[in-house]
Simulated scan of single mutants.
Amino acid sequence: MKRIFLTMAIIVAVTTFVFGQSKDEQEIRKMFAANADALLKSDMNALPDYYADSFTFTAADGTVINKMQFLDFVKNRKRSGSFNFDDLSVRTFGNAAVVNFTRTSTTIDNDDSKINSKSRDTAMLVKTGGRWQYVAIQISKELADDQAAAEKQIGELMTNWGNALGRRDAAAVEKILPADLMIVSPDGKMVTSRAEYLEVVKSFPSDATVTGKSEKTIVSGDTAVQTGTYSVTPKAGGANTMNYKYTATFVRRGGRWMPIAFNGRAMQQK
């Protein structure tokens, strides 16, 4: 029986370069940072200056409130454990600007339990008297926890991959894997492309059962690394089950997680 080729992890280092920003963009970014700090502290002396008198706040459920109602909400809400604006995308149009951003916050309930919240939102600002102010903020629906969402999608991918491999379904495997996949087998042999791996699939034992179990998944932005175990059981009458440990690296492309590297080693057979 041919063994499954399992993947080698690659640590992907991503460096983000910040190019020159206009003076207005720099001012807006500083304003967002200061505003987040004021919201965290519920600083009612500083907060009113960030919002124009005509300010409107639209919640994820469509509720619209004005500046006074918004400030009352902030004043009377539960304690904040953290409050951040990240991933700002700033576009300026003279004395107006549109900013897309990610809001993450933690509020502390009366029993000291923590409630985490995250959304991708949009703000409109105007510059009046040399100062940028919000005129409108639109809150999106809560974003799912990235770790949980990634683990779920990667888990489904791995299950589908194993099932397709067990059927020797090269067409299904091709849809799951990227063209630049790299695989290293337990005996050190390397497969450097999906096309090469599909030839391996065609010679895989038919009607085998392929199962896997993840042990740990680490997600960092659009990259994830997972460790776990993998087993192959041939159809009745075949050889014994082969067990492996693996490390896999995934990247998220177009909102979809896919493996780019797989490395495995055989476990001691019982």
Rank of each mutant, 00 (worst) to 15 (best):
S193G: 01
A97L: 01
E142D: 12
N116D: 13
T56G: 01
T7F: 13
P205H: 00
L88K: 02
F250L: 05
G212R: 10
K189P: 05
P48F: 01
D49A: 13
A60D: 13
K270D: 11
A224F: 03
A208W: 00
R256C: 13
K245H: 12
V219F: 07
N160I: 14
K41R: 05
D207W: 11
V184L: 08
V225C: 00
T192N: 15
Q153S: 08
Q226M: 09
G62F: 05
E199L: 09
G94A: 03
V225M: 10
R167L: 11
A38E: 06
I28C: 00
A239L: 10
S214D: 06
Y134M: 07
N35Q: 11
K189I: 12
A136K: 02
R29Q: 09
V18D: 12
A59T: 12
G94C: 02
A195I: 01
L40R: 09
Q147H: 15
R29C: 03
A148M: 13
A34K: 04
G255F: 04
P186G: 00
I183L: 14
K118D: 06
I218K: 07
M1W: 01
R253T: 11
A144R: 04
R29F: 13
T159I: 03
M182L: 14
L40K: 07
Y230W: 11
L40T: 02
M267G: 07
R29V: 08
D146R: 14
A236W: 09
A123T: 05
R168D: 03
I218W: 12
V219E: 09
T63D: 05
T233A: 08
D121E: 09
A52C: 12
K189F: 13
N84H: 14
V126P: 07
Y230C: 03
V210W: 08
V173C: 06
N35C: 15
V18C: 03
V173A: 05
Q138V: 15
A172G: 08
I139H: 15
T102C: 13
T241H: 02
M242W: 05
K175S: 14
W132I: 01
E199Q: 15
V201I: 05
G238D: 00
R252V: 02
T247K: 14
A170W: 02
D187G: 06
M124Q: 12
P205G: 02
R103I: 06
A33V: 15
I4W: 05
D53L: 12
V12P: 05
R120H: 10
E174D: 14
N35H: 12
L198I: 04
T229Y: 10
L6T: 09
M258N: 11
I183N: 06
V126T: 15
G130T: 00
Q153G: 14
Q269P: 14
A96D: 07
D111I: 13
S214G: 15
D112T: 15
K75C: 05
G188V: 03
